[in-house]
Amino acid sequence: MEYVVLVITAILIKNILLAEYLGNCPFIGTSKKMSTAIGMGMAVIFTIALAGALTWAIQKYALNPLNLGYLQTIVFILVIAALVQLVEFFLKKSVPPLYKALGIFLPLITTNCAVLGIAVLNIRRDYNFLEMLVFSIAGSTGFSLALILMTGIRERYEITDIPRPLQGTAISLITAGLMAMAFLGFSGVDTALKALQ
């Protein structure tokens, strides 16, 4: 039950993109075409789950015992950058179809702040291994959900008459705002679920 609440909170209530403001650059950048959005979404879930587990283990078994907590930021970003390279290399060699689908998005992911953001949040919220895994996957799923929904809306801009100054990024941000407002409607669901127990 605890984990159900965690999943619902991460995807709907505290959506990483629309409520926690993480990962907005790729959100605006890759939400123009549905196929791109789905590819990006899958690549993000995959990387965040891996990066979350890896950074969590490094923090618990290397940085904490050695009292090197202050190196967290620098180590995490390097791990993520290296991981992305490795994943890219691995996919290219062994799963070419998947590489074809996700390959071009992988380099973009290093600078996606949702990845580093979730890795850091896992530590700051003091999650245990299972909670960390659930949060990493649910958080990145929330990102992909918002990205895909957004793309669905943005594809309709083509047939809409948008005032010229608002075309492009401006209208995307306003749309994201309206989506964030819709997601606010989920707040309170977690308290209700907890009260059910």
Partner: peptide, 13 residues
């Protein structure tokens, strides 16, 4: 959050 998005979007416009 919604205010942040809308605000930035309008400023950009």
């Amino acid at each position: 959050a919604p205010g942040a998005f809308v605000c930035l979007g309008l400023l950009l416009g």
